[in-house]
Design a protein around this nucleic acid. Structure first.
Length: 163
DNA sequence: AAAAATGTCAACCGCCAAAAT
DNA sequence: AATTTTGGCGGTTGACATTTT
């Protein structure tokens, strides 16, 4: 068997957070600030592991979170950044104050990826997909030619430095 | 109307670097 | 200096929602 879970303490809760839990975590952090996540559940009266508390705070409770759908402009910028950084979501998210890496990753995986494919672009390389005689996509022979106008391309694995 | 397919998204897992001891 | 613990990250899962057949 593999590595043991971060919270082996049996009885620890997992899965979706309830509003009561959110309340406890929220008020605890607002009152005490962020110091040591491991201590949070105990001090806040939660049956969760510290890691779970951290995640909940970062992705959902932080007051500085910007909520709501990503705008088209944001989406475009994500594509630009992705073409340079690849799947370095936290790096990409750093350009969007108030948005989380998880949210951006989700958006990429569920919407943008498909959108690019529909435009005939490879979501990994951001380059036009070779089309040996149609295969999977829904023909309409129109697709790829016109999208060569994409300005982003190349430089996919560019930055080896800094994380 | 029902079922199947597809989409969405919160939250988990394990890895590993950084921090702590 | 070496070992252990914590926190950050990206990939992935699975529950629920929506759309399609």
């Amino acid at each position: 068997m593999g590595r043991r879970p971060c919270c082996e303490k049996i009885g620890l809760k997992r899965g979706p957070w309830t509003i009561e839990e959110d309340h406890k975590l929220m008020s605890f952090i607002l009152n005490n600030g962020i110091h040591c996540w491991r201590l949070v559940p105990k001090l806040a009266g939660l049956l969760r592991c510290g890691k779970s508390c951290r995640l909940r705070w970062i992705n959902y409770l932080r007051p500085d979170l910007k909520r709501g759908a990503l705008s088209e402009a944001e989406e475009d910028q994500i594509i630009q950044l992705h073409s340079r950084f690849g799947n370095r979501w936290s790096k990409i998210a750093a350009h969007f104050p108030g948005r989380t890496d998880n949210e951006i990753k989700n958006h990429w995986n569920t919407r943008i990826k498909k959108k690019l494919k529909e435009l005939g672009l490879d979501p990994v390389t951001h380059k036009p997909i070779e089309q040996h005689e149609n295969r999977g996509a829904k023909d309409e022979g129109i697709m790829q030619s016109k999208f060569s106008e994409n300005s982003f391309e190349l430089k996919l694995m560019d930055n080896p430095s800094s994380n």
